[in-house]
């Protein structure tokens, strides 16, 4: 088994903008092969991995993490050869100006987001919106049209870097961090008895409205689901009231839309096994795939486990690898002993 850093580095460097997840899905599928039978849905683009042979007497548990990332989509090429774009998911437009981007056209192309030069800019206190920007690909309209078409995806690719301690930064840690938790969990339960039939799903199109999760949950037809995503870790000036904390362990979700029994069971296990954890209370739905999965078919008991993350939806996201490993440890323990959850 390769280490968590290597998994994260491989997963984050793959492109997987919502609706165009192929590269990221294939990278994940290659890593999943070790743990079960892997299939990429030709319709949704989601990746499924069934672990071992299913035992009809056991309930089925769906382990979900979305594989897509936010990004941009080409809508138009101007007469000057610049690209106009729209967003796939909620891009933080405050980071766009003068960024280097990769355009996934007929080939991979480099572009720079044009910034208004200071001498023409009367007001630099305004954030630009995605609709305002132009991408400079250094070509005439005719040249650009040969290589780029409307619908092509555009990603800010900044590379994967280690920070101090066990922290790392990259684009797309939302939610490749979750995908890494899935992989680490499957590694931990390998050759061990579990209380469930386990099916992992790396779902498409979460960022554009949990669409891969909706069709995927229908296909898997699970009794229970654990949705692994990222959630807000506090940044400078924010308090414990507002957010979770980086490095303090998985954030176990409690919400009216989630299964309180599953939440409580996870908390119990964390205490019992001395795994650091945080509680994330949400007052309705969760803004994750849990919202779609929970109401799939006749209903699925669902809980969220979130990896704390800073700077969400920017190319400078940060996670702590220890949080990923602790999330996997917590979930693996849950899969081994469901306790009285089925009672």
């Amino acid at each position: 088994m390769i280490d968590t850093l290597e998994i994260l580095s491989r997963l984050t460097s793959a492109c997987g903008v919502a609706g165009e997840e192929r590269q990221a899905a294939q990278t994940a599928a290659d890593l999943l092969k070790e743990y079960g039978s892997v299939e990429i849905s030709p319709v949704s683009g989601s990746v499924f991995c069934r672990v071992g042979s299913f035992d009809k007497t056991k309930p089925t548990l769906l382990l979900d993490a979305h594989i897509d990332e936010i990004g941009l989509i080409v809508t138009y090429i101007t007469d000057e050869g610049f690209l106009k774009v729209s967003q796939c998911g909620g891009v933080d437009s405050r980071v766009l100006q003068a960024q280097m981007v990769t355009v996934y056209g007929r080939e991979k192309l480099t572009g720079i987001v044009a910034s208004t030069p200071p001498h023409l800019e009367k007001d630099n206190t305004k954030a630009v919106s995605v609709e305002d920007i132009f991408i400079d690909v250094g070509m005439s309209k005719e040249q650009a049209q040969q290589l780029i078409s409307p619908g092509d995806r555009v990603v800010i690719e900044t590379g994967f870097n280690k920070l101090c301690g066990t922290r790392v930064t990259s684009k797309a840690l939302d939610n490749r961090a979750g995908a890494a938790v899935v992989l680490k969990t499957l590694e931990l339960i390998k050759d061990r008895q579990t209380a469930f039939n386990v099916c992992a799903m790396l779902s498409s199109q979460e960022e554009t409205g949990e669409r891969g999760a909706k069709t995927g949950a229908y296909a898997v037809n699970a009794d229970m689901a654990i949705v692994i995503d990222v959630s807000f870790a506090k940044t400078h000036g924010e308090t414990d009231e507002d957010c979770g904390t980086l490095g303090k362990g998985p954030m176990i979700g409690i919400a009216p839309s989630l299964s309180s029994r599953m939440s409580q069971r996870l908390i119990e296990i964390a205490k019992e096994k001395d795994i650091p954890y945080q509680v994330e209370v949400m007052s309705g739905t969760t803004g994750t795939n849990a919202d779609a999965i929970g109401v799939s078919r006749g209903g699925v008991m669902t809980v969220t486990v979130s990896v704390p993350l800073k700077h969400m939806h920017t190319p400078a996201e940060i996670v702590d690898v220890a949080d990923i490993e602790n999330s996997a440890a917590l979930i693996a323990e849950f899969l081994e002993s469901a306790g009285d959850i089925n009672a």
């Binding site: 909620g90 003068a98 910034s115 700077h311 400078a316």
Partner: peptide
Amino acid sequence: RVVFGRKVEVGKNRICGVVGGKAVH
């Protein structure tokens, strides 16, 4: 606006950091 959300190098040892703030959400 060309600084927020960027990777930077700090000091002579080129310590890796990122410029950030509150999440847009």
